[in-house]
Design a binder for these strands. Structure first.
Length: 196
DNA sequence: CGTTCGATGCACT
DNA sequence: GTGCATCGAACGT
């Protein structure tokens, strides 16, 4: 399990080093996990795309708290998105986890995704809304300590491959910042550039 | 291949 | 009442 010091660093550093780590969620119905292959950084009140852009609110409170804590919220009324809080208390910043390569308990994840999904491993945890559904992450997991709870991130010594940086996806502001980090050529990455 | 569009719930002003 | 850090179905080319 990654220690708090791992998260208490510059957010771009954490975003890159989270690649290849393993997000694990233990529930009553089983433990599911996947290797992180795509992340995005959201850094401070000066970042217009960060949820802290308008200052502290009830929803974004975890962003202002200790590093190594999960920030989960509901997006578009449908999808839960999970972040790892970074830097230090009082400095709102986090890394959004956007895609995983499935590892533990694929059958459970397929069940959670629903029968509409065919057994395509690369689509199972592709996209921030899809991976939370596969792992069973909801608002109940908001503010859980990633260093000491049923929701955690582990270093299993996996090698994900080379990474590249590009613009963040799905936002309408601060599009110029290239704060999205992903594994080159990994088929579980969302919004991959088709064609080489 | 590509683009469009509806679903859906809650925090926020 | 407004606006999302999305997804997938349903089209068009």
């Amino acid at each position: 399990m990654l220690p708090r010091e791992f998260y208490a660093r510059a957010t771009l550093t954490v975003a890159e080093e989270l690649i290849g780590k393993v997000l694990v969620h233990r529930t009553a119905s089983g433990t599911a996990s996947g290797m992180i292959v795509e992340t995005e950084a959201y850094i401070g009140e000066d970042d217009p795309a960060c949820h802290a852009a308008c200052g502290p609110t009830r929803r974004n409170a975890p962003l202002y708290g200790a590093p190594g804590v999960a920030y989960v919220y509901l997006n578009y009324g449908i999808h839960y998105l999970v972040n790892a809080v970074t830097e230090e208390e009082g400095r709102p910043a986090a890394v959004l986890i956007r895609a995983l390569e499935p590892i533990d308990n694929v059958p459970l994840m397929i069940r959670r995704r629903g029968s509409t999904t065919d057994v395509d491993l690369h689509r199972l945890c592709r996209g921030p809304g899809n991976l939370t559904r596969a792992l069973g992450i909801t608002l109940e997991e908001n503010a859980l300590d990633l260093t000491d709870s049923r929701l955690r991130i582990e270093d299993r010594g996996l090698v994900a491959g080379r990474v590249s940086w590009g613009p963040r996806i799905g936002i309408r502001v601060a599009v110029k910042r290239r704060w999205r980090c992903s594994v080159v050529g990994n088929r579980s990455v969302s919004h991959r550039i088709t064609r080489a």
